[in-house]
Design a protein around this nucleic acid. Structure first.
Lengths: 208, 208
DNA sequence: TCCGAAGGTGAGCGACCGCTTAGCGCACCC
DNA sequence: GGGTGCGCTAAGCGGTCGCTCACCTTCGGA
């Protein structure tokens, strides 16, 4: 069951589902390199070097450099969506569910900010097919947040004049955490999550 | 005086201050290319081609490809900061000034989203010296917004438990507009500005 | 004991990169 | 009207890129 939990998108050791071991090491190396320098500025020699292998070894496990990005993006989006959904589908008032969703979504973007940075900002480097697949996942993320806000409005808990616009702003706020979050900075992922949950409840005019 | 207004950071024709004409055409071409594909994925041949010139022509006006990015980033930050400051330094209550600042800052990030995308997301491609210069400009942007919020708290207009954190969130929200804004989308820059000004007033708990 | 698949390496191919250089056309000026 | 300098081009240099290929090692099973 513990393996199922990991592949289901828990916050346990990341990339645990990627096998064999060499393929996982290459993928982790690629995440670090892409996050530091960007996809296009990263060379396959750099990725292989970080994983302690020769440049040619990369092509035993992945067909192209783009396939690496695609796998990273796919797994990252799956995990982020699963985290968001588990809060969105829980019991409780709309305010509780929205706060939980934002808290855990932001915590993930802060704690896994290297992964999140690649996942959120390197979409354009993907080919059309891969990009379409990822965009579909993002629409489901949007739908999950919009669903909570709509529930809150229907229940009279929230005051939101523009539901789609507010949904967009909430998600934008959470996602951008990956851009500015710094491990050496003054805030822990938990603290940012708590701050943002409060701010988002204010944005939707939650009765308090 | 009209030239002075443009160089002062107005929203009039962008890049009007860049001369001679060929240098401006190259710079505009670079903004488009960098925004579409990213700095590292853009070739000097592509930039020159968009400007209707041969690859070598670029090096008559700019020493390196990085100097182009530096100039774009510098001018863009100057303009964004000037827009923010003119709202921050105006007369009025803190709530009015904050709403004005967010409205105009967001409007710029939406209307000039190609420029803003380069300015906000390609910082890492700059060398250490150029990056340090830009980071200093960003600190002044942060200070301008924090100043308004502190004024509002001191005047009893706002209810903000964490001023630095809220400042960060407000700026993050505005800046990320450049990432998702789409000219073919359902919202005009003015509409996004109005929506965001309202959301930010809610975030700071403005009495209304 | 030998075999074949799986996983790895060193060398290198063809393409394309940022950038340079030699030289050309043309407005301008004494 | 012949120099002069500026803006630009054609050609190409050295280097690095993504990726391939021939070959090597390791190891479980017949």
């Amino acid at each position: 069951m513990s393996t199922a939990e990991e592949t289901a998108g828990g916050e346990g050791r990341p990339w645990g589902e990627v096998t064999p071991d060499a393929a996982r090491r290459l993928l982790v190396a690629a995440v670090e390199a892409f996050a530091e320098r960007g996809y296009h500025a990263t060379t396959t020699r750099d990725i292989a070097g970080r994983a302690g292998m020769s440049p040619a070894a990369l092509y035993i496990h992945y067909k192209t450099k783009e396939e690496l990005l695609h796998r990273i993006s796919r797994i990252g989006h799956d995990r982020a969506l699963a985290i968001l959904r588990s809060a969105a589908d829980a019991e409780g008032t709309a305010a509780e569910r929205l706060a939980d969703a934002v808290r855990s979504f932001v915590r993930w973007h802060a704690a896994q900010h290297t992964t999140a940075r690649v996942v959120q900002y390197e979409l354009d480097a993907l080919g059309p097919d891969a990009r379409a697949e990822i965009v579909a996942l993002r629409r489901r993320t949007d739908a999950a947040v919009r669903g909570i806000i709509e529930d809150g409005v229907a229940a009279g808990e929230f005051d939101v004049p523009d539901v789609p616009g507010t949904t967009l702003a909430v998600l934008s706020l959470c996602i951008d955490v990956a851009r500015w979050f710094n491990v050496d900075g003054p805030r822990t992922p938990d603290e940012v999550g708590a701050l943002y949950a409060d701010l988002v409840l204010r944005m939707v005019g939650a009765k308090r």
